[in-house]
Amino acid sequence: MRLPDSVTGSFLVVLGAAAAYGGWILPPVPGQPVGPNVFPLLIGMGLALCGLAIVFGVGHSFEEEEELVPLEDGQAAAPPPQGKLQGKLYGLRALLPPALLLFYVLAADRLGFIITAAIMVYVTSTALGAKWKLALPLAALSPFAIHLIFGKLLRVPLPAGLLPTPW
């Protein structure tokens, strides 16, 4: 997902310009010199300026030492195991967690918490390399444990859906 600075910078210019324009067209508050439009206008302009600076490589020299810093999990970004075989598709695996969360949003009300959660756990676990012998029991048990803590103890109204919990 490492994009060239020119791409991220241009994106910021567009985002900043859009924010500034969005602030500009907000209606002013009668009898008040400064309204809700000033702040987004300033931020949008600032963001666009930063974007321009990034496109032209300003401040890039400060980034050199970043290479020395390990990633948050303390490992250098190691090449993926079968990176060459799967190529670009391998990078898309990173999108699995947010996709599963959106799946939860769409499916939880209909299928119920237990079933949706079990599917999420199974998919995540297999994607991280677990065999079905491990992933299946985990998917069967962990939703109940989470339901016990959040649904029963903390009284979060989790959707029951197709499979109501025994308690």
Partner: peptide
């Protein structure tokens, strides 16, 4: 505990916690 058991639980906690 392998990562493949910890991370799914984290995902569930994210979903339920942010809903709560």
């Amino acid at each position: 505990a392998p990562r493949s058991t910890v991370m799914p639980i984290i995902m569930l906690c994210c979903a339920v916690g942010s809903f709560a």
